[in-house]
């Protein structure tokens, strides 16, 4: 298993290279350039700037240069926030975003999966109906609605929690953003788990386990649960992607110094290194998550285990 994991980890590098290459091309294909909006620039200054950042070189050379930098963990200078390198920007923001994002996914797992199991166990009873309704709402409401709503209720009305801010990750400041991000993911996980557990409970091997006289609890925990978790595990990758995109809204609503805004702002400013840096970091994170999901999958279902 460990050898397999390490080998898969090695296999991520070519994939990451593909991501870098493709996104490099796409980013550069977008019309416009980083200094277009600064109308006051004279052609000479502009040429100087282009030269400074290597933008006057052929694209292939720029690409190789960028790859070379990546090898040293150097994402290049930011073109829009000219006092910072991209590495510095991401280095400051990423811990915030990652803390909020991972906590949100963790919370979603902790709430969503047990809720799904409970709903399936008491299917078509009050608790199940309530949960299903709640989950439908939570999936449907966008975070720019729930975020301010939470801030309003728990912050301004009840004064339980601060409305915004980071304060070096003090738990009180984390609760609302994490909750806002986690809610739809948890709801979705609950629905997935409920549906797949019901499906598994109808399978022949469950009937066969019951024919062996095994009690309901044992059948549920030992025979049904692991295969029923497979869809939830497959959803881990997409969940991360959701959290990444959701972080833009949540970080804006709750005033968090994360990286969410860099992706959009960087794209608008044609800040090539910043956009690329974000893509590379989140691409790597996504690949890592998918790998974890795969390994979990192998643990849950021996049929997909290799060698």
């Amino acid at each position: 298993m460990l050898r397999y994991a390490l080998r898969r980890l090695g296999g991520l590098i070519p994939t990451l290279l593909v991501i870098v290459t493709v996104s490099f091309c796409i980013v550069r294909l977008a019309p416009g350039g980083p200094f277009d909006q600064e109308q006051t620039l004279t052609p000479a200054v502009r040429a100087n700037l282009d030269h400074l950042y290597g933008l006057d070189q052929p694209l292939a050379a720029q690409y190789l240069h960028y790859l070379g930098g990546l090898l040293h963990g150097d994402f290049g200078p930011s073109l829009s926030q000219r006092d910072f390198t991209v590495t510095e920007l991401i280095g400051q923001g990423l811990p915030v975003s990652i803390t909020v994002g991972l906590l949100a996914i963790l919370l979603a797992l902790v709430i969503g999966i047990p809720a799904g199991i409970a709903a399936a166990t008491w299917r078509n009873q009050g608790a199940d109906h309530g949960l299903t309704l709640f989950a439908a709402l939570a999936v449907a409401l966008p975070s720019f609605v729930t975020g301010p709503l939470f801030a309003l209720v728990f912050g301004l009305a009840l004064h339980w929690l601060p409305v915004a801010g980071w304060e070096r990750g003090a738990p009180r400041y984390l609760v609302l953003p994490v909750l806002t991000l986690a809610l739809p993911v948890a709801a979705y996980l609950a629905r997935l788990t409920r549906a797949s557990l019901l499906e598994v409970l109808r399978s022949p091997w469950i009937r066969s386990a019951r024919a062996r006289g095994l009690g309901g609890t044992r059948v549920l925990w030992r025979h049904a649960l692991r295969p029923a978790l497979l869809p939830a595990v497959s959803y881990l990758g997409p969940a991360l992607a959701y959290v990444v995109t959701g972080s833009l809204v949540v970080e804006t609503v709750f005033g968090l110094p994360g990286t969410g805004r860099y992706l959009v702002q960087g794209a608008i400013d044609r800040d090539y290194p910043l956009v690329m840096g974000m893509i590379v970091v989140y691409g790597a994170l996504l690949l890592l998550f998918n790998l974890i999901a795969d390994l979990l999958y192998g643990w849950l279902d021996p049929r997909v285990r290799h060698e």
Binding site: S203, P204, W205, R207, S208, A209, A211, R212, G213, L214, R222, H223, R226, P227, L300, D301, P302, R303
Partner: peptide, 18 residues
């Protein structure tokens, strides 16, 4: 499973896969 044993048709799917 104790006093009454049961064998089903499809051994492919009647054993718990994991």
């Amino acid at each position: 499973g104790a006093a009454i044993g049961m064998v089903f048709q499809d051994p492919m799917t009647s054993l718990t896969p994991h």
